[in-house]
Simulated scan of single mutants.
Amino acid sequence: MTNPIPTLYQWAGGSDALNRLTARFYQRVHDNEILAPIFAHMDSEHPQHVAAFLAEVLGGPAEYSAAHGGHPHMIRQHLNRHLSQAQRREWVALLLDTADELGLPDDPEFRSALVGYLEWGSRLAVINSQDGAEADENAPMPRWGWGETKGPYLPPGG
């Protein structure tokens, strides 16, 4: 029997939606005075890597882990970058604003789950960017779901 409740990945619109989100987000980063310096030397494939990571975290295919080595790889990308809380907050706010711009689902259940992951993940990135942080080579890939909700918001008649 298949699960009638879609994953967050499916609800967001799958890989196409997440690739559009990260592509547009990183376009906007270039004009953001707080974030632009962090990503000034970003690889052209960075948006696709972030989209694949988000896809896997939100219940989609494990392509990021297969191609890059999962969560330990992501942690290593943040080591010694000395990210600040102001940069973290700006990153989360701009990503959510971009989600609104592109029309990603804005129902309360989905957005609370998305915000929950972005808050958790971005705070972890700040911690892992400070002096002395190390990547745990056994760190499992985070998997985010609907949390305490009974499932996704369905509009009347949906």
Rank of each mutant, 00 (worst) to 15 (best):
residue 21 L to Q: 06
residue 22 T to K: 01
residue 22 T to C: 11
residue 22 T to Q: 10
residue 23 A to E: 08
residue 23 A to Y: 01
residue 23 A to C: 01
residue 24 R to G: 09
residue 24 R to V: 08
residue 25 F to M: 05
residue 29 V to K: 00
residue 30 H to S: 15
residue 31 D to V: 01
residue 32 N to K: 00
residue 32 N to R: 03
residue 33 E to M: 04
residue 34 I to E: 08
residue 34 I to A: 07
residue 35 L to F: 13
residue 36 A to Q: 10
residue 36 A to V: 02
residue 36 A to T: 02
residue 37 P to Q: 06
residue 38 I to P: 02
residue 38 I to N: 08
residue 38 I to L: 12
residue 39 F to Q: 07
residue 39 F to R: 05
residue 40 A to M: 07
residue 40 A to G: 02
residue 41 H to R: 09
residue 43 D to C: 07
residue 43 D to I: 06
residue 43 D to K: 12
residue 43 D to R: 10
residue 44 S to A: 13
residue 44 S to F: 13
residue 44 S to L: 15
residue 44 S to T: 15
residue 45 E to A: 10
residue 45 E to T: 12
residue 46 H to P: 13
residue 46 H to A: 15
residue 46 H to Y: 14
residue 46 H to M: 14
residue 47 P to K: 00
residue 47 P to I: 00
residue 48 Q to I: 09
residue 49 H to K: 12
residue 49 H to C: 13
residue 49 H to F: 14
residue 50 V to Q: 09
residue 51 A to F: 10
residue 52 A to T: 15
residue 52 A to H: 15
residue 53 F to E: 05
residue 54 L to N: 10
residue 55 A to M: 12
residue 55 A to Y: 13
residue 55 A to K: 07
residue 56 E to P: 10
residue 57 V to Y: 00
residue 57 V to T: 07
residue 57 V to D: 04
residue 59 G to F: 03
residue 60 G to A: 07
residue 61 P to C: 03
residue 61 P to A: 08
residue 62 A to I: 06
residue 62 A to L: 11
residue 63 E to S: 13
residue 63 E to W: 07
residue 63 E to C: 04
residue 64 Y to C: 06
residue 64 Y to P: 01
residue 65 S to T: 15
residue 65 S to I: 05
residue 65 S to M: 11
residue 66 A to R: 14
residue 67 A to F: 13
residue 68 H to S: 04
residue 69 G to N: 08
residue 70 G to W: 06
residue 70 G to D: 08
residue 70 G to E: 03
residue 71 H to W: 10
residue 71 H to V: 00
residue 72 P to C: 14
residue 72 P to M: 15
residue 72 P to A: 15
residue 73 H to L: 10
residue 73 H to P: 04
residue 74 M to S: 04
residue 75 I to D: 15
residue 77 Q to P: 05
residue 77 Q to I: 03
residue 77 Q to R: 04
residue 78 H to F: 14
residue 79 L to A: 02
residue 79 L to H: 09
residue 79 L to D: 09
residue 81 R to C: 08
residue 81 R to Y: 04
residue 81 R to A: 00
residue 82 H to R: 09
residue 83 L to F: 15
residue 83 L to N: 07
residue 84 S to A: 14
residue 84 S to Q: 14
residue 84 S to M: 12
residue 84 S to P: 14
residue 84 S to T: 15
residue 84 S to H: 14
residue 85 Q to A: 10
residue 86 A to V: 13
residue 86 A to W: 12
residue 87 Q to I: 09
residue 88 R to C: 08
residue 89 R to Y: 09
residue 89 R to A: 14
residue 91 W to L: 12
residue 91 W to V: 01
residue 91 W to C: 08
residue 91 W to T: 04
residue 92 V to W: 06
residue 93 A to C: 01
residue 93 A to Q: 03
residue 94 L to T: 02
residue 94 L to V: 02
residue 95 L to T: 01
residue 96 L to R: 09
residue 97 D to L: 06
residue 97 D to V: 03
residue 99 A to T: 01
residue 99 A to C: 06
residue 100 D to T: 06
residue 102 L to W: 04
residue 102 L to D: 04
residue 102 L to R: 01
residue 103 G to Y: 12
residue 103 G to N: 11
residue 103 G to T: 09
residue 103 G to S: 10
residue 103 G to W: 13
residue 104 L to D: 05
residue 105 P to K: 06
residue 105 P to G: 11
residue 106 D to L: 11
residue 107 D to E: 05
residue 108 P to L: 14
residue 108 P to D: 12
residue 110 F to C: 00
residue 110 F to V: 01
residue 110 F to P: 01
residue 111 R to L: 13
residue 113 A to P: 05
residue 113 A to S: 12
